[in-house]
């Protein structure tokens, strides 16, 4: 029998302790052990980007990480964007610009955008494409997502 591993990590500022088999992927741990189901699974082979979260501030694909690899890390997921009823500017921008249709890929997109806008406050369209090229949206055709990023960047610039 393979022994379980203890895993301690912080998600959205809250500390969690749990245990998982070594083979458990990080996204399964977040969703099914911690109940943070806002992060979605689209392919389980690291191509679609739906499972993207922030790990120590960097956008990573949680379907191709083991939970054990994230032991001790500081994570952020879509659940960490809004503060109570107040939506994050990225979320507001997605609503205003119709950056989503079915909404399944959206949490992953928003986390990649979060990383981008932390480092690049006024991204060019090329920089936006670069940051989002590894994420697939099957509904929108990306135009409204591009607009959402521009809108979110402007909102964030205005608020600082």
């Amino acid at each position: 029998m393979i022994s379980q591993r203890d895993i301690r990590l912080t998600v959205n500022g809250v500390s969690y302790e749990g245990s998982a088999e070594p083979r458990m992927t990080l996204v399964d741990f977040l969703r099914h052990e911690l109940g943070l189901v806002g992060t979605h699974v689209g392919c389980e082979h690291g191509v679609c980007g739906a499972c993207t979260i922030l790990m120590d501030g960097k956008a990573v694909r949680s379907c191709i990480m083991l939970a054990a690899q994230a032991d001790g890390a500081d994570l952020m997921t879509v659940e960490g964007l809004a503060k109570d009823a107040e939506l994050h500017p990225i979320q507001q921008a997605f609503m205003e610009e119709r950056g989503l249709q079915c909404g399944f890929c959206t949490p992953g997109f928003m986390m990649s955008i979060h990383e981008l806008l932390q480092t690049t406050t006024d991204p060019s369209d090329e920089e936006i494409r670069d940051a989002l090229g590894g994420a697939i949206c099957r509904c929108t055709g990306y135009e409204s997502i591009l607009k959402s990023v521009r809108n979110a960047a402007a909102k964030l610039r205005a608020s600082t």
Binding site: R31, G38, H40, E79, G103, P107
Partner: peptide, 23 residues
């Protein structure tokens, strides 16, 4: 008119109850 979607708040916060969220 291009009114905002009523579907969106649950989707952008990750709260929509997709089937794999149901236990």
């Amino acid at each position: 008119r291009p009114v905002k979607r009523v579907e969106d708040p649950q989707l952008i916060t990750g709260r929509a109850e997709f089937i794999d969220n149901v236990e």
